[in-house]
Amino acid sequence: MKARWDAKTTCIYSSLALSHTLLSRGQVAKILANQTRHIPTEYKDVLSYEKALDYIQEVWAASTKPITVLTVRTLAEMVLGQPPEAVERAVNAVEPSIRTLLEYLENQTDHPVIQAGIALCLLSTGAAIPSDSGIVARLTANAFLAKYGYDIRGFLTVEKHWLMNESSYSIALTSLQKQGNLNHWLLFYVSTIEANLQERYEDISNTQVHQDFSAQFWELNERQKGILTHLSDPASSITNRKVQQLFDVSQITASRDLAKLNTLGLIFPHGRGRSITYTRT
């Protein structure tokens, strides 16, 4: 639980920092934990990015469907902070290039990590959406990794390595235009994936690395534990109304319990409004 929270916080902070969003990791963590009373407009980038990651896990984890232009457009609508019609115009401007890229990847037998790397590079350069600062490109690559299980269920935080080596990241991304091939970029991309996998293994084994909040933040009450027990069957789901009935609590209390479990990454929401249901992650 703590390791997945740490991974999500690090991923969002690092990717936004690569796009020059001036938020500290601590600020990102507090926004994700709903510990800020008022969220300024610039902070909404964090919640939008989280929404996009949730979409990737819900729709693309272990999916057999092809990633298409619609996927890229959906991610762009979530994170670019622009009206839908503006996003549509931006995507349409490069749609032929995006479509050619995605169809090429769909018909190739390259390793999924290589496919993700190719997608990230080309969506950051030749097929880049005009208003994207790299966020949509990185999320699309994440979708490729999730599709084939190489995001290790949300534990991968390779964006951290790119931020730590931002100059090398930028040089590698633009190497295609200068060298006419992807060799430099793919070598950089794969090596950072490999380094991050090793780091995540060490982090998961080290219970002392997660210091964003006090121990109380991670504690679950008996109702919250009961909700997780109810969801122990992979085919089961639960709603706010069902929580009210099972534990004889108000709608507000049920909402708080579900929000806490969702914040900690223990359950996953499906749908919107009153029709929303939750399953185990």
Rank of each mutant, 00 (worst) to 15 (best):
K2P: 04
D6C: 08
K8I: 15
T9Q: 13
S15F: 03
R25T: 12
Q27H: 10
Q27G: 06
Q35K: 14
T36A: 12
A52W: 08
D54H: 13
Q57W: 06
V59K: 12
W60N: 01
A62K: 04
S63A: 13
P66D: 15
P66K: 12
V69E: 05
V69S: 05
V69P: 03
L70R: 12
V72E: 08
V72W: 12
T74C: 06
A76V: 15
E77S: 10
E77D: 14
M78K: 15
L80W: 11
G81K: 10
A90S: 15
A90I: 06
R99N: 14
T100W: 13
T100S: 15
L102W: 01
Q108V: 15
Q108N: 12
Q108F: 12
P112F: 14
L122A: 08
L123Y: 02
G126R: 07
A128S: 12
P130L: 01
S133F: 08
S133V: 03
S133Q: 13
V136P: 03
A137R: 00
D151C: 01
D151Q: 05
G154I: 09
F155A: 01
W162A: 05
L163R: 12
L163C: 12
M164R: 12
E166N: 14
Y169T: 04
L176H: 09
Q179M: 09
G180N: 10
H184S: 02
F188K: 00
D203K: 03
D212G: 01
F213Q: 06
F213N: 07
F217K: 01
W218E: 04
Q224V: 04
Q224P: 01
L228E: 00
T229Q: 10
D233T: 05
S237Q: 02
I238T: 05
Q245V: 09
Q245P: 01
L246W: 05
S250I: 12
L261C: 05
G265N: 03
H270I: 03
Y278K: 07
T279W: 02
